[in-house]
Write a protein that binds this DNA or RNA. Structure first.
Length: 843
DNA sequence: TCAATCACG
DNA sequence: ACGTACGTGATTGAG
């Protein structure tokens, strides 16, 4: 069997990948979708073809002579979007790291290099496979040269294959005649002008009949359609030039080194590092599959003997830093422990080496080592609980502060014997970056202490009255089935009301309601749309109510019931590395979105109850984000407004609409409130107009008047956007960062989003910082003052404490002091306090 | 696995 | 001309 070479048209494939793969960005904000797509196509081809050689051709930046000819004739080529341009050099580096030769030659296009390489290969008796999305390349097909063209069809990539015979079948001409076809019909994407008035049909007919352009001209008088005859006669020069442009040069002075192109091991340590840097998790797995060598790692010593473990723990205790990870699975428990990058142990729980022994000793070690790095310290605290909590360094939280936009911070080695080694290796750079980015105190004084606050909150959990919850759910069932029946009757058939697709058909087709398309996939049936349709048909109100009730049933009644632990309490997880702004999030269950706005939903809060002898004390900040805005902007008028008035929306209305405070109408107040919200979200006249159901023109007037009234706000928001554009990120009062890569996008929508983010994140983030500080202080004071009351919940601007009856007054005092003093602002930080025997009463 | 929907701040 | 408010998580249906 003869040898085979794969030749890839670099620019063509990266282009195709760019437009075919959804936007991806790595942790540095570099776009990676085109690189990812390119590599996927390349690996697929390599898997299928199993070639002996591989090379990738690129155009050089300098214009080639073919383009010079054309540029002189007309304009220039369309520019490449910045998001793609930045990926090209990275791809080239990755390919070079794989040892793949890049074919580039000044004065020649990638086409020419591919053509030349294919011809040279064929002469040597080597089969060539050219991969490109460019139909021009079809002229190179022979019995030994295969052209493969990837096509994106319905999300999946299909590849069309062309040998000479396939070209003939598809186009009725031989491969070299593709040149003639292109020259006649032209190709806008390839900048070939063609002959005006001749399209694909006529061009094919002419070449099938005469074989070549020259021969067609020789017989120009007999050409049938008069239109074609005239077109040819009038544009002879154009046809000749187009032919030159369309002809791929197969005689380029190319020195293809077969030795370099020989396909050996693509999976080098260097490539491994690249894939990690680009966040190509899926591609990283190819390293394991191929069994190729990974970057060299020291031997991990597996320890199962008591005596040996003892001496390792003793040695560990003398270190000034270390890393450890707990590896726990179905039938395995062990501690990965790295004392240095050369000394790594895996202590397995076997025989005399019990889990308790390992975790107890690990606790002692952490007690004595000033810097202990690990991944997810909150989870570790279930097993390791030293007094010196400040010794812990959570690498995931550090990485989150450095870039909060990453979806997961767990490294690939978690759960393996060398997990701790990877953790230890990451430590120096994390420390450096935290210092460089001036987030060390945010990390040390806010985020790491918060780990323990959140841990304790999770352990405490929240008591639930299971019987009452069950009753609440059951009460919903009858109402739901009644509504279901009524809806099906009104519709005249049974269908799944929960399916927006089916519901859309019923409402907009069967019942003929006007609503039209709104989403990508079909009709929108959102509450917003349905509200407007409600007067048209009684079914709509039923559907809205059905939606409301089923939501309460499935997400809250059933959902919460499934989360009650053996102790009769719900232990939600509070996640510290999820949000882009610095807020915490709550999962399994989410206790931060328990209904409150609608009375029926709000009633579910009655099932959340304190332990016997305890009472709930709930405190929430009053408009913390707007107060943060007043402080950060330094706007005198807004600050003054907060110092004198209780009702900020009312005073805003009074000042913006120039009416006395006591004469503000409810509508004016409502509008002012909406503008206040809009400002915090990153104002846009469109957004405000939607919220208030007014025209964008009116919305813009409101905004202009607002900025006239509070000029400091406008200056502040403009500066946030400007700084973000210069620096690439925004910061909170406490130094927390959020990168805003969207600001560099060439897409208007993305860029606008970036601007709103630049305005909102410092405000939302600062508010998040403040309540985190307050949480830590409240948590610490409860412990330090020897109280039995416990912080159990945070809902962004609200803290809930399960307070011992006898301590309730003291708890209120602590909440008031610590929440108000958490930050020193130019406006007072006010809170509302409530007590209750359940969460409903306490809110 | 993704889109639509809706609960919260 | 573009086509939106900022930040989350759970459930459901459908590919």
């Amino acid at each position: 069997m003869s040898e085979k070479i794969v030749l890839i048209d670099g620019h063509s494939i990266i282009n195709r990948a760019f437009y075919g793969v959804p936007d991806l960005t790595n942790s540095d904000g570099l776009h990676t979708n085109a690189i990812y797509g390119f590599l996927n196509i390349m690996f697929r081809i390599l898997d299928e073809e199993k070639p002996d050689y591989l090379a990738v051709a690129f155009d050089l930046k300098a214009p080639t002579f073919r383009h010079q000819m054309y540029d002189a004739y007309k304009g220039t080529r369309k520019p490449m979007p910045e998001e793609l341009r930045e990926q090209v050099p990275v791809l080239k580096e990755v390919l070079q790291a794989m040892g793949i030769p890049l074919l580039m030659k000044e004065g020649f296009e990638a086409d020419d290099l591919l053509g030349t390489a294919a011809r040279v290969s064929e002469e040597k008796g080597i089969n060539a496979v050219i991969v490109s999305g460019d139909r021009d390349l079809l002229q190179l097909a022979t019995d030994n040269v295969l052209i493969r063209m990837p096509k994106t069809k319905r999300g999946t990539t299909e590849i069309e294959n062309y040998y000479a015979a396939d070209v003939k079948e598809a186009y009725q001409v031989n491969p070299p005649q593709i040149i003639e076809l292109k020259a006649l019909m032209g190709d806008a994407s390839d900048n070939i002008p063609g002959v005006p008035g001749i399209g694909e049909k006529t061009a094919t007919n002419l070449i099938v009949a005469y074989g070549s352009i020259e021969n067609a001209y020789a017989h120009v008088e007999e050409i049938k359609p008069n239109r074609a005859k005239e077109a040819l006669r009038n544009h002879y020069d154009m046809a000749k030039m187009s032919k030159k442009l369309a002809t791929i040069c197969v005689q380029a002075p190319l020195e293809l080194s077969w030795e370099n192109a020989k396909l050996t091991n693509l999976y080098t340590p260097e490539v491994y590092e690249w894939f990690k840097k680009l966040n190509f998790k899926k591609l990283l797995s190819r390293f394991d599959l191929t069994g190729t060598e990974l970057p060299s790692v020291p031997e991990v010593k597996r320890v199962t003997e008591l005596g040996e473990a003892e001496s390792i723990f003793a040695k560990a205790a003398d270190q000034d830093r270390l890393a450890f990870e707990i590896c726990q699975s179905k039938d395995e428990f062990g501690i990965s422990l790295a004392l240095s990058e050369q000394e790594v142990y895996y202590l397995a729980a076997e025989g005399f080496l019990t889990e308790e022994y390992l975790t107890d000793h690990m606790t002692q070690v952490v007690e004595q080592v000033p810097l202990c790095a690990a991944s997810d310290v909150k989870k570790l605290l279930k097993m390791v609980h030293p007094v010196h909590r400040e010794h812990f360094f959570d690498i995931e939280i550090a990485a989150y502060l450095i870039n909060p936009l990453i979806s997961s911070y767990a490294h690939e080695d978690m759960g393996t014997p060398h997990a701790a080694l990877t953790t230890l290796k990451k430590l120096p750079e994390l420390l450096n970056k935290l210092d460089e980015m001036e987030m060390r105190s945010l990390f040390d004084e806010v985020e790491m202490p918060l780990v323990f606050t959140l841990f304790d909150m999770e352990q405490e959990g929240m008591r639930v009255n299971a019987e009452e919850l069950k009753a609440y759910g059951e009460a919903l069932v009858d109402k739901i089935s009644a509504l279901e029946k009524s809806i099906h009757e009104a519709a005249g058939e049974e269908f799944n009301i929960n399916s927006p697709k089916q519901l859309g058909v019923i409402l907009f087709e069967k019942l003929g309601m006007k609503g039209g398309k709104k989403t990508k996939t079909g009709y929108s049936t959102s509450a917003e749309v349905l509200d407007k349709l409600a007067p048209e048909h009684p079914i709509v109100r039923d559907i809205l109510e059905y939606r409301q009730l089923t939501k309460l049933k499935s997400t809250y009644a059933d959902g919460l019931a499934g989360c009650i632990a053996a102790d009769g309490r719900i232990h939600s997880s509070f996640n510290q590395t999820i949000t882009a702004t610095g807020r915490i999030s709550s999962t399994e269950p989410n206790l931060q979105n328990i209904p409150v706005r609608m009375e029926l939903g709000r009633l579910i809060r009655k099932v959340f109850i304190p332990s016997d002898g305890y009472v709930f004390v709930d405190a929430d900040y009053s408009q913390i984000e707007l107060r943060v805005l007043a402080h950060m902007s330094g706007d005198e008028k807004l600050i003054e407004a907060y110092r004198q008035a209780e009702d900020i929306h009312r005073i805003t209305a009074s000042q913006v609409f120039h009416v006395p405070f006591d004469e503000v109408t409810p509508l004016q107040r409502r509008n002012a409130k909406a503008v206040n919200f809009g400002i915090v979200y990153g104002i846009s006249s469109f957004g405000l107009s939607q919220d208030l159901s007014i025209s964008t023109k009116e919305a813009k007037e409101y905004i202009d008047r607002y900025f006239e009234t509070y000029p400091g706000i406008k200056v502040f928001l403009d500066k946030l956007v400007q700084d973000a554009k210069e620096q690439g990120y925004v910061t909170t009062m406490f130094g927390r960062r959020r990168p805003v890569p969207e600001l560099k996008s060439s897409n208007f929508m993305q860029r606008s989003f970036g601007e709103r983010v630049a305005m909102n994140s410092p405000i939302q983030g600062t508010a998040a910082d403040i309540i985190k500080i307050a949480m830590n202080r409240v948590h610490d004071r409860l412990l330090r003052e020897g109280l039995e009351s416990r912080l159990i919940l945070q809902v962004h601007d609200e803290l809930l404490i399960e307070a011992k009856l006898s301590e309730a007054d003291q708890v209120e005092q602590i909440l008031r002091e610590e929440m108000q003093q958490a930050a020193d602002l130019q406006v007072p930080l006010e809170i509302d306090l409530h007590r209750g025997n359940n969460w409903y009463e306490a809110k």
